[in-house]
């Protein structure tokens, strides 16, 4: 069910916080620092524009606001008009609710379908759900320069992950990911995600431009642009309730 994949848009923001420098080519340490830099916030609010491009099918643009606090997330669609007012509340991996304005009701949705594109975009829930890597992947350094390091992440034995292998290019100074390349178990390149235009509020940084290129569908790419970002602004708990997503206040 596609609505389930809305969860991914929320988790995406969790990947965008940043931290301090890494100084050595110790792959596990670098990966740990990246995880730490991505999960440093208490709450966040984003306004995104999502643009999907697919050859022969034209462009589509979605606009969404995302509220995050600990595990809880609310995503609110503001465009296109057909989806405007749709809100999704995620309380945990197994508790998700969607409010559909045309139906004037909240539905609880449980799903295990995680590999499909989020509303036809190049991002899947799997792409967006991961917020930490060191607990799931072993790392080794492939390349290193003065400012960046390229790590190869290989799934730890027994860990259920969407991609058995990932290449990450990260900025060493702030331990921020710049590019992820996802591979299947045969080593075929499936997707490439870039993150750029980082902006920081104290030690927390987020990319203002992200782009996912789907190599399994040549020419298919989705960009996600941050229009507004607030961090640690003491979001109220009432936002993360079924009542809020139904009433919008």
């Amino acid at each position: 069910m596609n609505v389930r994949t809305l969860i991914g848009s929320l988790c995406l923001a969790a990947l965008m916080s940043s931290g301090t420098a890494a100084s050595a080519a110790d792959a596990p340490a670098l990966l740990g620092q990246m995880d730490e830099s991505l999960n440093r916030w208490k709450d966040q609010y984003f306004e995104y524009e999502m643009r999907d491009t697919q050859p022969g099918k034209g462009d589509r643009t979605l606009a969404l606001n995302v509220y995050m606090k600990a595990e809880k997330r609310v995503t609110e669609f503001t465009a296109p008009a057909d989806a405007k007012g749709t809100r999704v509340l995620i309380l945990s991996d197994t508790q998700m609710y969607v409010y559909l304005p045309a139906y004037k009701k909240v539905r609880r949705v449980a799903s295990h379908v995680t590999a499909q594109g989020f509303m036809g975009t190049a991002y899947s829930q799997d792409d967006l759900a991961v917020t930490t890597y060191a607990d799931k992947y072993d790392a080794k350094v492939l390349e290193e320069s003065e400012t960046t390091a390229k790590l190869e992440l290989t799934a730890k034995p027994g860990k259920q992950v969407a991609y058995p292998k990932i290449h990450v290019v990260m900025e060493k100074e702030r331990a921020l990911p710049l590019e992820f390349t996802y591979f299947d178990d045969k080593g075929t390149k499936l997707k490439t995600e870039s993150r750029s235009d980082y902006k920081c509020d104290g030690p927390i940084c987020v990319p203002y431009v992200m782009k996912m290129e789907d190599h399994t569908t040549p020419g298919h790419a989705t960009s996600l642009t941050t229009k507004k970002w607030k961090v640690d602004s003491d979001l109220e708990d009432r936002i993360f309730t079924r009542r809020y997503i139904q009433k919008g206040r």
């Binding site: 069910m1 596609n2 609505v3 999907d52 697919q54 099918k57 589509r60 296109p80 057909d82 989806a83 749709t86 559909l100 304005p101 045309a102 139906y103 594109g117 509303m119 036809g120 975009t121």
Partner: peptide, 14 residues
């Protein structure tokens, strides 16, 4: 309701 149909189409897009 046409609004419902339109909303359903957004979930079917792509």
């Amino acid at each position: 309701d046409a609004d419902k149909v339109r909303l359903l189409y957004t979930f079917l897009a792509g």
